[in-house]
C-alpha cells in the first residue's frame, strides 16, 4: 500500500514538472526576427598559468512561421428562416504565428450535398447575398465598427471573431440548409487597412535573415482551395432553414342539450399548434366564420384559456364580428415551438 502511494506521489511530481515546463514556452513561440545569440567561452592554463578567456559567438534570426486557425463558433447548425436578411454564421480566426498578422477574409457558398455538420437536411438553398466582417466587439452581430473583408492586425496568439451575414431567399424550403465556407488568408499586419501579401523565402537564404514560411494545415477542402502551407485556413458551416410548423385542428362538442338540434349549444375548440424544433410563430391570425344556422354566444370566446373582449379588435387577441364580419377572430398570437394555443367559443343552433 505504501509502495503504491509512493508511486502515485512520484507520478504526481512528474505531471507537475511537465505542467510547469509547458508554462515556460509561449504558445506560438519566439517573435519572428529575434536574433538568438550563442556565446561560448573557454578558460585554460598554459604552463600552469591562467590565460585570457577566449570567446566565440554565433547567431541566427528567428524566421516567421505563418500559421492560423479558422474555426466555426457554433456547435449546432444555425437556424434561420426564409427572407431573413440577418442570418449570421459566427467564426473565430486565431493567429498561431510568431508575428502579428492581418487577414483577408472571403467566403464561398458551398454546394455540398449535405449540410455541415452532417445532420439532417441537404444543401439546396443559396443565400441571395452574403458579406464577411471582423466582429470587432465580439457580440456576434453586425455593428458599425466591424470591418468588411479583412482583419487589419491580430497579435501573436490572439483570436478574433468573424461573422458572415447572409440574406436567405423567400422561397427557401424548410429543413434544407446552406453551407458557407469562410477562408482567412494571412497578410502583413496593418493599421486600419488590409496589409500586404506575404511572400515566402525562395532561393538565396541566410542565417541572419528573417524568412517567412507557411506552415498552416488544410481546412475544409470542399472547394479545393485550402491546401497545407498556403497561408489560408478555412472552415465551413451551415444555415438550416426553419420556419414555423403550424397546424390547426377544430373539434366540436355538445355543450348543452342531448342532440345537435335547435337550441343546443355547441362548443368549438380550435387548436393552433407549432411543431417541435422549429421557429416560434408570431403574428398568427386565426379567422373562423361562425357556421350558418348558428348564433355566436356572447362572452364565450377564450384564447389560451383567457376570456376576450369580443366587441373590440386589437385590445386583446380575440373579437367577434369586428375585424371580420360574422367571424370569430384571434389575431397576433404567438405560438412558440412545441406549444399550442386553443381558441374556444360557443354557438347556439338556430
Amino acid at each position: 500500500m505504501l509502495q503504491l502511494n509512493m508511486k502515485w506521489i512520484a507520478s504526481a511530481v512528474l505531471v507537475l514538472a511537465l505542467v510547469v515546463s509547458a508554462d515556460v514556452v509561449l504558445a506560438d513561440g519566439t517573435q519572428a526576427g529575434t536574433v538568438v545569440l550563442n556565446t561560448a567561452l573557454v578558460d585554460y592554463d598554459v604552463n600552469g598559468t591562467g590565460q585570457t578567456q577566449e570567446s566565440a559567438s554565433e547567431d541566427f534570426t528567428v524566421d516567421r512561421k505563418i500559421d492560423l486557425t479558422v474555426a466555426v463558433n457554433h456547435v449546432a447548425y444555425v437556424q434561420t428562416s426564409p427572407s431573413s436578411t440577418t442570418a449570421i454564421l459566427r467564426f473565430t480566426v486565431e493567429n498561431t504565428s510568431n508575428d502579428a498578422l492581418g487577414f483577408a477574409l472571403s467566403a464561398v457558398d458551398e454546394a455540398a450535398a449535405t449540410v455541415e455538420p452532417t445532420l439532417t437536411g441537404t444543401d439546396e438553398v443559396n443565400a441571395i447575398t452574403f458579406a464577411i466582417y471582423e466582429d470587432v466587439n465580439g457580440d456576434g452581430l453586425l455593428d458599425g465598427g466591424d470591418t468588411q473583408d479583412y482583419i487589419d492586425t491580430l497579435a501573436i496568439d490572439a483570436t478574433t471573431d468573424v461573422i458572415i451575414v447572409a440574406e436567405i431567399p423567400a422561397a427557401a424550403a424548410i429543413t434544407f440548409g446552406d453551407n458557407l465556407m469562410l477562408s482567412a488568408l494571412a497578410q502583413a499586419a496593418e493599421s486600419g487597412t488590409l496589409g500586404a501579401t506575404l511572400v515566402t523565402a525562395s532561393g538565396a537564404d541566410a542565417q541572419d535573415v528573417e524568412d517567412t514560411e507557411f506552415i498552416d494545415a488544410s481546412g475544409d477542402t470542399v472547394a479545393g482551395t485550402d491546401a497545407v502551407d498556403d497561408a489560408i485556413h478555412s472552415d465551413m458551416w451551415a444555415f438550416v432553414i426553419q420556419g414555423a410548423d403550424i397546424t390547426v385542428t377544430k373539434t366540436a362538442t355538445l355543450f348543452s342539450g342531448s342532440y345537435y338540434i335547435p337550441g343546443s349549444v355547441v362548443e368549438y375548440t380550435i387548436t393552433v399548434a407549432n411543431g417541435a424544433g422549429v421557429e416560434d410563430a408570431t403574428n398568427v391570425d386565426l379567422v373562423d366564420t361562425v357556421p350558418a344556422n348558428t348564433t355566436f354566444v356572447g362572452g364565450t370566446l377564450t384564447v389560451g384559456g383567457v376570456a376576450q373582449s369580443e366587441g373590440t379588435s386589437g385590445d386583446d387577441f380575440g373579437d367577434f364580428n369586428v375585424s371580420t364580419a360574422g367571424a370569430v377572430s384571434a389575431l397576433n398570437m404567438t405560438v412558440a415551438t412545441g406549444t399550442s394555443t386553443d381558441v374556444v367559443f360557443r354557438v347556439t343552433i338556430d
Binding site: 550563442n38 585554460y44 585570457t52 577566449e54 570567446s55 566565440a56 554565433e58 542565417q207
Partner: peptide, 11 residues
Amino acid sequence: KQKHVELEAKA
C-alpha cells in the same frame, strides 16, 4: 597577448 586556444561556435 599570446593566444594559445581559439574557440569556434556553430549553430
